[in-house]
Design a protein around this nucleic acid. Structure first.
Length: 295
DNA sequence: CGGGACGCCTGTGAGC
DNA sequence: TGCTCACAGGCGTCCC
């Protein structure tokens, strides 16, 4: 039983947008410029790779980028002359995946849940994913299928300044579903997974069952600010945990989130003392304070 | 066409 | 103490 007033430390096993971004930063510059020597495949992931592993050999690794929770690793073909092509790997960590880049010579042999190794001249990029919801998919270009198809459904990046309060509010006006469900769906704004969606709605004082189109402009603006603040805070924590990880403390690189509502059903709201509730929306648990969060 | 249900997969932990 | 089994979740896909 957690202490009465303590926030529950939640070990975030699933990679949310902040952790994906921290992961990207951890290897992007170190692997950029390397040449692909080979690919090792383990158990199948969500989708097949989509090309022969040998087709990647000799390609030059570009700078990894992120869109939503997807990572794009450009693999440039330069030889022979006249056959230049960008192409690359679209990667997703699912809910239990992690990526680690290990300098050449220090790599452990692949274990049970290591499903993909990109062996390069600078080291090995390895995807580990116990539940195998993750994916590594070849795409001939970022703006061609299958990458473009997968990314086409994504909403705005949460920190994109083009996502103004007015645009956020306008997008919500077009929806009749519950606001929590819309946040999770990620087609208006990406990045708020189940935990962050709950936490952001609590911070904004909005009942997760509120229909999107019922939200006033000021409340929509407040929600957007809270989504951003929640993700920014997690990004800070993710960054600090990564440093801990490098210092050889954490064993799995997980970081801790101070949850005010997530996983705390029955415990008192730390703002008003009312017992927090758990409901199910779109097959997912939602945690909220029935007193602080208004429709 | 919006919106909700389903299923993939396996580690975890509650309950017997 | 050991076993069973529901549950957790991102998100593409299917169906109403």
């Amino acid at each position: 039983m957690p202490a009465f007033n303590a926030r529950s430390p939640i070990i975030v096993a699933m990679p949310e947008l902040p952790e994906v971004e921290v992961t990207r930063r951890s290897f992007a510059e170190r692997i950029a410029g390397a040449q692909v020597l080979g690919v090792r495949l383990g158990a199948p992931l969500r989708w097949p790779l989509g090309c022969r592993p040998a087709a990647l050999v000799g390609r030059r690794v570009g700078l990894a980028t992120r869109r939503g929770k997807y990572l794009w690793l450009p693999l440039v073909r330069a030889e022979p002359p006249g056959t230049e092509g960008v192409g690359g790997l679209l990667m997703h960590l699912g809910m239990s995946g992690s990526l680690a880049f290990t300098e050449t010579g220090a790599l452990a042999p692949p274990a049970k849940h290591d499903h993909f190794d990109l062996v390069t001249t600078r080291g090995v990029l390895r995807l580990t994913d116990p539940r195998r919801f993750g994916a590594v998919v070849w795409s001939p270009a970022l703006d061609a299928p299958p990458a473009a198809t997968l990314l086409s459904r994504l909403g705005a990046e949460p920190f994109d300044e083009a996502l103004t309060p007015a645009r956020f509010h306008a997008a919500l006006q077009l929806r009749r579903t519950a606001v929590k469900t819309a946040l999770l769906a990620g087609d208006i704004v990406v990045g708020a997974g189940n935990i962050y969606a709950c936490e952001a709605l609590f911070a904004a004082g909005i009942d997760p069952r509120t229909r999107c189109h019922k939200l006033s402009r000021p409340r929509a603006e407040r929600l957007l600010a809270c989504v951003r603040a929640t993700l920014a805070r997690a990004l800070e924590l993710g960054g600090s945990s990564l440093r801990d990880f490098r210092d050889a403390h954490g064993s799995d690189g997980a970081y801790q989130l101070e949850a005010r509502v997530y996983g705390r059903a029955g415990l008192p709201c730390e703002r008003c003392g009312t017992a927090l509730r758990r409901i199910v929306q779109a097959q997912r648990s939602t945690f909220f304070c029935p007193a602080c969060q208004k429709r």
